[in-house]
């Protein structure tokens, strides 16, 4: 309460002493309460962090504990062995997951980013963009099994077989709305003064959008892409209806393929101890892949974007 001492020397404050006394009383009262509130909030946040981290951490520990035993070169590269034999590996599932993630991203990143760019930079909030935004939000909330059924009806039935294409198509429908939303929101955060600086230099809208706005917002957009990938990497329901799963390696985009979530689900539903151990192993690999993609993509793309800036 050093403030109060200096206030006494100020003649103007003496004039209004009756006011300052009253205000100071309120401040003092409030200040005591504030110290208590601060402590309470701090404790609450710590508790929340612990509550959030404990289940996450224990899942991770459990997966690592149970999964690491299963992991070997054979496990990572071989086809599954005979049922219950404890032989072979999850090679096709790892391969399939990577192919599916790659193909889904190849489909959804351009579509999602361009839509997001349209909504943020070009649409001027017309009626069409309102509709697009609404449809996009509905898509975000769609249960993934429904998306799986859509993939089954539109691609599996028409093409006549379960296929990589159908799987990637369904997962793209999950990815696109996430990427659209994140792209739009991050681009909108870019200050308008940067666009104006671009216009004042005579730059075209395309140049401004790509080289200034998108380049400024790239880390946000990238986060959205990583988020979308993590979201689909573990999706099982749509894959059951579209790629079916197989114990063979990838043969063609129009044929079935295996994927880690499907393999984990299969292994977990078998009655053998060895299958369960493999299931934990596969889960660990899935987590590692998602983690690696998240971190790796960030580093890789950030470097490349910096180079092609101009």
């Amino acid at each position: 309460m050093i403030v109060m001492n200096s206030e006494k020397n100020n003649p103007k404050n003496n004039e209004n002493k009756q006011y300052t006394d009253k205000i100071n009383n309120y401040i003092k009262k409030k200040y005591k309460r504030r110290i208590i509130t601060n402590k309470l909030v701090t404790i609450l946040t710590i508790i929340s962090v612990v509550v959030a981290v404990i289940p996450l951490g224990s899942i991770l520990i459990e997966v690592i504990k149970n999964g690491s035993e299963a992991i070997s070169i054979e496990f990572l590269t071989q086809k599954p062995g005979a049922l219950g034999s404890g032989k072979g590996g999850i090679g096709p599932a790892i391969q399939g997951t990577l192919i599916i993630i790659g193909l889904s991203s190849a489909l959804s990143v351009p579509v999602g980013m361009l839509t997001g760019i349209y909504l943020s930079e070009y649409s001027k909030n017309n009626r069409f963009s309102t509709v697009v935004r609404f449809v996009n939000d509905v898509l975000t909330g769609l249960p993934s099994i429904v998306i799986g059924i859509v993939g089954y009806v539109t691609l599996v039935l028409t093409l006549g077989s379960y296929s990589v294409l159908a799987g990637a198509f369904s997962l793209s429908i999950i990815m696109i709305p996430i990427i659209v939303r994140v792209t739009e929101e991050t681009l909108k955060l870019v200050p308008n003064s940067l666009r104006e600086a671009g216009y004042s230099l005579g730059l075209s809208k395309t140049k401004i959008t790509l080289n200034i706005v998108l380049s400024t917002a790239k880390s946000g957009v990238l986060t959205g892409i990583v988020l979308a990938i993590s979201r689909i990497a573990g999706e099982t329901a749509p894959l059951i209806m579209t790629i079916l799963g197989t114990s063979l390696f990838f043969s063609s985009f129009t044929g079935p393929v295996d994927a880690l979530p499907l393999r984990i689900w299969r292994l977990a539903s078998q009655p053998y101890e060895s299958a369960h151990s493999f299931g934990w192993g596969a889960a660990l690999i899935l987590i590692v892949i998602v983690l690696f993609l998240g971190v790796g993509l960030r580093v890789l793309i950030r470097k490349n974007l910096a180079k092609v800036e101009m």
């Binding site: 200050p191 380049s215 400024t216």
Partner: peptide, 29 residues
Amino acid sequence: KRRIGMVFQKPNPFPTMSIQDNVAAGLKL
């Protein structure tokens, strides 16, 4: 726009560009 340049109220260099690239931006782009 080339013949009539503009400077804004708040400094607004392009955040992802170096000093060099900021100055060169209008030419390069």
